Simulated scan of single mutants.
Amino acid sequence: MVFGEVAHVYDDVRPGYPTEIARTILDYHGTAPAHVVEIGAGTGKGTDVLLRLGAPITCLEPDPRMAARLTAKHPQVQVRTESFEQWRPPAGGVPLIAAALAWHWLDPATRNPRAHAALTPGGTLAAFGHRYAYADPDQAAAIDATLRAIDPTVRDRPPTWLHDDIIASGLFTDVRTETTSRHLPLTTDRYQQLIGTFGPFRTRPVDERARALDAVRALVDGFGGTVVLDLRTTLVLARRPGTA
């Protein structure tokens, strides 16, 4: 339950997803799915886009504070305060499972087999998320050096890790990846708030968090009070073999 205590900040400052993701998913799936299950729905950043599929959605969100925020925003979806591992799919499975910036929180040993088993034959897995890069290489280098000086253990996942993880399972066919990029300028305050919602930050001791935020403030103020993110959004689509 890493994000619950900052659910309102998370919902406010985390960037949403391009609406075009919904059309890409529909084109891949072939028709509007009869049912969508979203893993780790959080406050509904991914749900905002998935609602455009025109299908009933069941959102799995184990943190009750995040789930409450999601329910308030989207009362039309069914929210279940349980994890993907706790959830039991209906008999016959579901036609589409989605995960928005949640795949990395699932058990690496079981996430692909569980998704495969929960899908109907021919069903679609849609996993997507942001990668926070920087438009200015100098800003990127300075921020990376500053944060690693506080916590040198932090490691970024490779840009293709999501695609590679699903491919490596050997369980899915027709795996496709689309990546889009957009620039997102943030003030010092907004960037501090964003950093405060990241998982690696939330799991660090309180004193390290305070030092990181102080360092980030000094750094971005030195840039003139603005940092420009190169926000890269990757969507990976995959299909369970077979026909419904």
Rank of each mutant, 00 (worst) to 15 (best):
residue 223 F to L: 06
residue 72 A to Y: 03
residue 69 R to A: 15
residue 63 D to L: 11
residue 129 G to D: 07
residue 171 L to E: 08
residue 155 R to M: 10
residue 169 S to H: 09
residue 206 V to W: 01
residue 219 L to S: 02
residue 136 D to N: 15
residue 149 A to V: 05
residue 184 L to T: 11
residue 32 A to S: 14
residue 217 R to A: 07
residue 146 T to R: 09
residue 10 Y to D: 01
residue 126 A to V: 02
residue 73 K to E: 13
residue 124 T to E: 06
residue 150 I to D: 04
residue 20 E to I: 06
residue 131 R to Q: 14
residue 28 Y to W: 11
residue 38 E to S: 04
residue 3 F to R: 08
residue 115 A to Q: 00
residue 132 Y to T: 08
residue 206 V to H: 13
residue 26 L to G: 08
residue 116 H to Y: 14
residue 11 D to P: 06
residue 222 G to D: 05
residue 198 F to E: 13
residue 182 R to V: 06
residue 109 A to Y: 02
residue 2 V to Y: 00
residue 215 A to Y: 08
residue 6 V to E: 02
residue 128 F to K: 00
residue 139 Q to L: 03
residue 98 A to K: 02
residue 69 R to C: 14
residue 52 R to G: 00
residue 164 D to S: 01
residue 93 G to M: 14
residue 240 R to V: 00
residue 226 T to C: 05
residue 184 L to M: 11
residue 50 L to S: 09
residue 228 V to T: 15
residue 156 D to F: 11
residue 160 T to Q: 13
residue 176 R to M: 04
residue 144 D to I: 00
residue 28 Y to G: 10
residue 189 D to F: 00
residue 20 E to F: 00
residue 55 A to E: 10
residue 88 R to G: 07
residue 197 T to S: 08
residue 24 T to M: 04
residue 206 V to Q: 14
residue 149 A to N: 12
residue 215 A to M: 04
residue 123 G to A: 04
residue 45 K to T: 05
residue 213 L to W: 03
residue 82 E to R: 08
residue 114 R to W: 08
residue 4 G to W: 06
residue 210 A to K: 12
residue 57 I to G: 05
residue 172 F to W: 09
residue 163 H to F: 13
residue 13 V to P: 07
residue 12 D to K: 10
residue 120 T to W: 01
residue 107 D to Q: 10
residue 204 R to V: 01
residue 53 L to P: 09
residue 79 V to T: 15
residue 24 T to Q: 12
residue 197 T to R: 09
residue 28 Y to S: 05
residue 48 D to C: 05
residue 72 A to N: 14
residue 52 R to Q: 15
residue 104 H to F: 12
residue 195 I to L: 15
residue 89 P to C: 13
residue 55 A to Y: 11
residue 141 A to T: 12
residue 118 A to P: 06
residue 239 R to G: 02
residue 107 D to I: 13
residue 146 T to K: 04
residue 119 L to T: 03
residue 49 V to T: 14
residue 146 T to W: 02
residue 226 T to M: 01
residue 113 P to N: 08
residue 206 V to P: 01
residue 204 R to W: 12
residue 153 T to P: 02
residue 180 T to F: 03
residue 68 A to V: 01
residue 244 A to S: 12
residue 80 R to I: 15
residue 43 T to W: 03
residue 83 S to R: 13
residue 20 E to T: 13
residue 122 G to L: 00
residue 42 G to N: 06
residue 117 A to I: 07
residue 95 P to V: 06
residue 145 A to K: 06
residue 180 T to P: 08
residue 86 Q to A: 15
residue 160 T to W: 07
residue 51 L to E: 07
residue 146 T to S: 14
residue 131 R to V: 09
residue 181 S to E: 15
residue 210 A to P: 01
residue 8 H to Q: 13
residue 138 D to F: 01
residue 216 V to G: 00
residue 111 R to P: 01
residue 147 L to V: 11
residue 219 L to G: 01
residue 101 L to K: 02
residue 172 F to T: 02
residue 3 F to M: 01
residue 121 P to F: 14
residue 164 D to W: 00
residue 156 D to K: 13
residue 243 T to K: 01
residue 236 V to K: 04
residue 167 I to H: 14
